[in-house]
Structure formats: structure tokens, C-alpha cells
Computed example of a mutant assay.
Amino acid sequence: MNTTNSHEKLKRSIEQQAQRIRKADSEQSSLLAQTVFIGTLGLLFVVPMVAGAFLGNWIDHQMSGYSASWTLNFVVLGTLLGGVNVCVFVRRH
């Protein structure tokens, strides 16, 4: 009787471990999914920076004389915003 119980416990334990392994294999990210994730991070960081550069350049050209102060300020602001975007995205995923 005692050996039957121990065999049943061992069998259940092995089946639980096998289920955990199958679940881990099915949840593992593919190379394509990882590439898309990294590409998304890049876009989330670069797009606000480039948009800030274009907006700052447009404002600078609207003012008399040449100045790059708005461009530089908006590039820095875009970089900070891009960093926040990446942090929020990584925390959610």
C-alpha cells in the first residue's frame, strides 16, 4: 500500500513538472517576436526625438534671424519623452 502511494505521488509530481515544461516552451518568445519588440522600442524612442527636431526647426525658421535654440530644446524634450515611452512600454510588457 505504501509503495503504491509513493508511486502515485511520484507520477503526479512528474506530470506536474512536464506540464510546467510544456507551458514554458509554449510561452517562449520567437526570434521574430523579440525583433519586433526591439524595433518597437527603437521607434518609441526615436519618433518623439525626430518630431521635436522638425517642430523646433520649423519654429526657428519662423523667427527672424537664425537660431537653433528651439530645435535643441525640442530635441532634448523629445529624447526625454522617448525615454519615458520606452520605460512605460517595458514595464507593461
Rank of each mutant, 00 (worst) to 15 (best):
F89W: 06
W58T: 15
G52H: 07
Q34T: 12
Q62Y: 09
D25H: 14
A53W: 14
V75Y: 01
M1W: 08
V50E: 01
G82I: 08
V86N: 01
I38C: 04
L80A: 02
G42H: 09
L44E: 12
N2V: 03
G78P: 06
N57P: 01
S13V: 06
L43K: 10
L77S: 11
R91K: 11
R92W: 11
T71L: 14
L55A: 10
K9F: 15
S30H: 00
A24G: 03
R22S: 08
F45N: 07
E27Y: 08
N85G: 01
V84S: 06
Q17P: 02
A51H: 08
L72S: 12
L77Y: 04
K11I: 08
Q62I: 09
N5I: 08
W58D: 11
E8Q: 15
A33T: 10
L77A: 15
K23F: 12
L41W: 03
T71F: 13
L77T: 10
S13L: 14
H93W: 13
A53P: 03
R22K: 09
L32D: 03
N5T: 08
Q16R: 06
V50F: 08
H61K: 09
A68C: 02
I14M: 13
T79Y: 03
V84K: 05
N5P: 00
F37R: 11
K23A: 15
G39V: 06
T79N: 01
K9P: 00
V75G: 05
T35R: 04
Q19H: 03
T79M: 12
G65A: 01
R12M: 04
F89N: 05
K11A: 10
N85D: 00
I21D: 05
A24E: 12
R92L: 12
K11Q: 11
Q17T: 13
V86R: 02
V47W: 14
S26A: 14
G65Q: 04
G39N: 06
Q19K: 07
G65T: 02
L44K: 14
Q19G: 00
V50H: 01
V36E: 02
H93S: 12
K9V: 14
E15F: 13
V36K: 05
T79W: 04
T71K: 14
E8A: 15
C87S: 10
Q19V: 03
M49L: 15
I21R: 04
N85Y: 10
V36L: 08
L44F: 15
Q62N: 06
L80R: 00
R91Y: 09
W70L: 15
I38D: 03
T79H: 02
V88I: 11
Q62L: 14
G78K: 04
N85I: 07
S26F: 05
T40N: 11
V88Y: 03
V90I: 15
A68P: 01
Q34M: 13
S26I: 07
L10V: 02
D25C: 12
N73E: 01
